[in-house]
Nucleic acid binder design. Structure first.
Lengths: 193, 193
DNA sequence: AAGCTAGCGGAGGGTTGCCTCCGGATGCAA
DNA sequence: TTGCATCCGGAGGCAACCCTCCGCTAGCTT
């Protein structure tokens, strides 16, 4: 997303003056916190307060709630995709599993956000594309190596795993155990371990 | 939940006079719709409108938004658990799978609701108990028959499956395919089919 | 260092939803 | 049928939040 592909239109809005850019970034950070804490209905005035800026500044940068959503969301996806670099050096299965673990950690906090954007947003679909171009090669490689079954697609995996993250787990151990079960389902009928 | 266990305190409030009971039921139905449609933040005045009663009637029956949540939720769980009857006649694996399919259909619409109740509600935990007592026997039976791996518990399965339902699937076919993958993960390392 | 202009903050008007309260209606028991 | 306890509806006060608008501040350029 950083180098490849068109820079999403969301970030064309990023202001140029130093103080403005500072405020813009502070707003995104504050919004990320507020949304994580109170869900998608978090008060925008609270976001501005957290960011230490006036409400007017918030609205100048993000005319609607959705603009703010999208900016936060794009930022998250950007981080996730960036984190996929370097995994190609691991063995196919391990690389896929490692990335899926990051994916889980990523989606876990984004429930409310994703919920909003699921409906009719081309931002969402473009982010989806980014995620796919980061993760799908790992999957293909694992399938080519014969360690993942061939009758499913990467989107199946994404849904299986992202669903997992929506459930709240009492302990990281249980989360990993369940994730392990799901991953076992990805194996071919008689895969070598 | 109907016969076994203590009747949940939520339903102790069910009124006795005929018109009152009618309104009470209409409110729950309306609330179910409204929550499904607009999420947990649906307007209570809208709920009253849908139910064809005054806002005062709503508040008399359900002093807080949470009361309404819980009543709707309990009603849903009640239906799900009731639907588990009769499955014991199927073969162990089939019975488990069948119930999990119903479970999926059940949870799919309850996202917003469950989200709210996840945090600090003894109603939620009591419903959880009900669900477990409906589904866990099916799981144990399947494990005893050797068609489900022994290193996981029923709660692991619940989380795996309920997570699945949170993702939105473009087609029922994909949902079933992914569910199938998850179910494969439940199999013992070399289970007979 | 001085001016220009992008950017800032927050007061305030408008909207929406929450919840209370009480005069009137109505089911039920006798 | 009659009386009364229960229940009804919705007006209205209150609070929260949304968003606009404009006088002031402070980066950036020359």
């Amino acid at each position: 997303m950083t180098s490849a592909g068109q820079a999403p239109e969301v970030f064309a809005r990023r202001p140029k003056r130093a103080d403005a850019r500072r405020n813009y970034d502070a707003l995104i950070t504050a919004a990320r916190e507020a949304f994580a804490e109170h869900g998608a209905a978090a008060s925008l005035e609270d976001v501005a307060r957290r960011a230490g800026v006036g409400i007017g500044t918030l609205y100048r940068n993000f005319p609607t709630r959705r603009h703010l959503f999208e900016a936060v969301y794009v930022e998250e996806v950007r981080e996730l995709c960036h984190s996929a670099e370097g995994l190609a050096e691991l063995p196919p299965w391990d690389a896929l599993v490692a990335w899926l673990h990051r994916f889980v950690a990523y989606v876990a906090t984004k429930r409310a956000l994703a919920e909003q954007l699921l409906h009719d947003s081309e931002i969402f679909t473009s982010c989806r594309t980014e995620i796919f171009s980061a993760g799908e090669p790992l999957m293909r490689r694992a399938q080519a190596a014969g360690v993942v079954r061939n009758d499913i697609g990467f989107d199946d995996v994404v849904r299986l795993i992202s669903g997992l993250t929506m459930a709240q787990f009492p302990s990281p151990e249980q989360r990993d155990r369940v994730l392990g079960v799901a991953l076992d389902g990805l194996r071919p009928p008689a895969a070598p371990r």
